[in-house]
Design a protein around this nucleic acid. Structure first.
Lengths: 199, 199
DNA sequence: CTCTAGGTAGAGCAATCATTCTACCTTGTC
DNA sequence: GACAAGGTAGAATGATTGCTCTACCTAGAG
């Protein structure tokens, strides 16, 4: 991915995140990407390709923003992830998760569905790893999905609630620890005190 | 709302739920509503009005489906709501929550945002009431939002996870019960045994 | 200096869209 | 039987769309 390609992808992501996936026509996308129409089509030969490019660009940006330099202690990491998602929503995703938005705008496009699935499963896997909760991928994903969807409605209260649910989950998990059947882990159960995550 | 108006709204809801909010043009909507173009426009003078009509119709249907005839015991009610949401996803919302989809398709339409907000807040309020957890509206909303968003990805595992989170929340709430500051309740804290909701 | 790769600007095109309009049919009421 | 209200079918319209194409510019290599 050369420099101009990066510029285009960043512009596409910004345009779709700001105005949704239906509203911006190709000329608006061109404007956001700051290239000529011909160049835009050279790299992404159809509007659908532009959507995919924007999502792949965002995936990289999101993952690095959420998971870079997390605290080593797993409860601190989970807490920090929730906080970062809150900041992400505020600064970058006021309209909600871009992947869900893309699928919502074109629910019959299988490529988008697959991208959504990959994005969310990778997120869940990495979060379960960082939070020291192998086997709880789905619960963690559910909390974060709930946070992202209710943030536009409840604002920071959604963050607080996510923290409380995470704390409750840690207590619960502490009593009924599961091995990790999904990620091919070695079955070792990580247990640590849970008092660190507080509302 | 007379008979023909109901038929139109039901058809619109079905069309948008099946194909999303961008794909169906007005002629497809007319086909789904089984009326003439002129009649369709008589009741809903623009496509945007058709979207709003579909959402209002779905709101009524969803609320009655989720909250009708719930068990009296509050933990059973919460459990049953989660189960019903799972069935709803399976039978009616394979593409995810229709209200979020509508906002995602047109994020700059304030009427849609307001409708989403009203829908979700009413849902949260009624659920907190039915679950005997006044003051926990946001946590309950977060769980259900997470369930609806992760269901298309994780299927029934999302239901199981939502049950576990609800159980964990009940344990947590039992120790730190809050009054209900949001719904104008009388401050009485409802406490009941929590063992009834199990994964 | 010439050539080429890859950029810009923007006109043109066929298709599709939301919306309006014309013309006709059905049904219950006076 | 005349009438009005409200239905059907579908053509017409003007705007917009995604995409293609022509014509030109520019920088670096030879």
């Amino acid at each position: 991915m050369n420099e101009i390609q990066t510029r285009i992808a960043a512009g596409l992501e910004r345009a779709f995140a700001t105005h949704g996936f239906s509203a911006p026509n190709v000329d608006r996308l061109r404007e956001a990407a700051q290239v000529s129409l011909r160049t835009l089509y050279r790299y992404y030969p159809s509007r659908d390709d532009m959507v995919l490019a924007a999502l792949e660009f965002r995936h990289e940006r999101y993952m690095s923003r959420i998971f870079s330099d997390l605290p080593a202690l797993s409860q601190d990491a989970l807490c920090e992830v929730i906080r970062r998602i809150g900041h992400w929503m505020e600064s970058e995703a006021a309209h909600g998760c871009l992947f869900h938005s893309a699928v919502a705008a074109a629910p019959e496009n299988p490529a988008l569905k697959q991208l959504l699935r990959r994005h969310k499963l990778e997120f869940a896997r990495r979060l379960a790893g960082a939070a020291g909760l192998p086997g709880y991928e789905t619960e963690l994903l559910l909390i974060c999905e709930g946070l992202m969807q209710s943030w536009p409605i409840c604002g920071d209260k959604a963050c607080d609630s996510a923290m409380r649910l995470a704390a409750a989950l840690l207590v619960h998990a502490d009593g009924t620890a599961r091995g990790n059947a999904d990620t091919g882990g070695n079955g070792t159960v990580v247990r640590q005190p849970t008092e660190r995550i507080t509302p």
